[in-house]
Simulated assay, not measured.
Amino acid sequence: MQFHDGIMCILYKFQTIIGLFGNCFLLYLYSFKIIINQRIKLIDNICINLVFSNILMMLFRGIPWAMEACNQKNFMNDIECKIIIYVQRVSRGTSLCTTCLLSVFQAITITSCGPHWAKLKTSVLKSIVPACAFIWVLNLLIDLVVPLYVSGPRSINNSQLTRNLGFCSIDIYAMRTLKIVIWKTFFDAVFVGLMSITSGYMVLILYRHHWQVQHIHHTSFNPSASAEIRATKLILCLMSIFVCFSSLSSIFIIVMDNSKDTKQWVVNISAYFSLIYPTISPFVLMSSDSKNAINCNAFNRMKKSYKHSSKNRE
Results as ranks from 00 to 15, higher is better:
residue 248 L to K: 13
residue 287 S to R: 02
residue 53 S to E: 10
residue 272 Y to S: 07
residue 133 A to I: 14
residue 215 H to Q: 05
residue 253 I to L: 15
residue 170 I to V: 13
residue 148 L to W: 10
residue 168 C to F: 01
residue 140 L to Q: 12
residue 38 Q to L: 04
residue 225 A to T: 12
residue 293 A to H: 13
residue 42 L to I: 04
residue 50 L to S: 13
residue 146 V to M: 05
residue 263 K to P: 01
residue 76 M to A: 04
residue 197 I to K: 05
residue 99 T to K: 07
residue 240 S to N: 11
residue 80 E to V: 03
residue 163 R to G: 12
residue 62 G to H: 00
residue 254 I to P: 10
residue 84 I to T: 00
residue 40 I to N: 03
residue 264 Q to N: 02
residue 24 C to D: 07
residue 178 L to F: 09
residue 308 H to K: 12
residue 176 R to Q: 11
residue 25 F to H: 09
residue 145 V to G: 09
residue 55 I to F: 12
residue 304 K to N: 15
residue 117 W to I: 13
residue 165 L to K: 02
residue 211 W to M: 04
residue 260 K to N: 09
residue 8 M to A: 03
residue 187 F to R: 10
residue 13 K to F: 00
residue 129 V to F: 04
residue 153 P to V: 01
residue 102 L to I: 07
residue 136 W to P: 05
residue 158 N to V: 06
residue 2 Q to D: 01
residue 4 H to F: 04
residue 156 I to G: 02
residue 149 Y to R: 08
residue 76 M to Y: 02
residue 183 W to Q: 12
residue 12 Y to G: 01
residue 190 V to H: 03
residue 177 T to C: 05
residue 187 F to N: 12
residue 34 I to W: 04
residue 81 C to G: 01
residue 129 V to E: 08
residue 7 I to T: 04
residue 290 S to C: 11
residue 96 L to Q: 14
residue 148 L to A: 07
residue 283 F to H: 04
residue 248 L to D: 12
residue 249 S to R: 15
residue 49 N to I: 02
residue 19 G to E: 06
residue 16 T to C: 08
residue 74 N to R: 06
residue 269 I to W: 12
residue 32 F to V: 06
residue 16 T to H: 02
residue 149 Y to K: 06
residue 39 R to S: 03
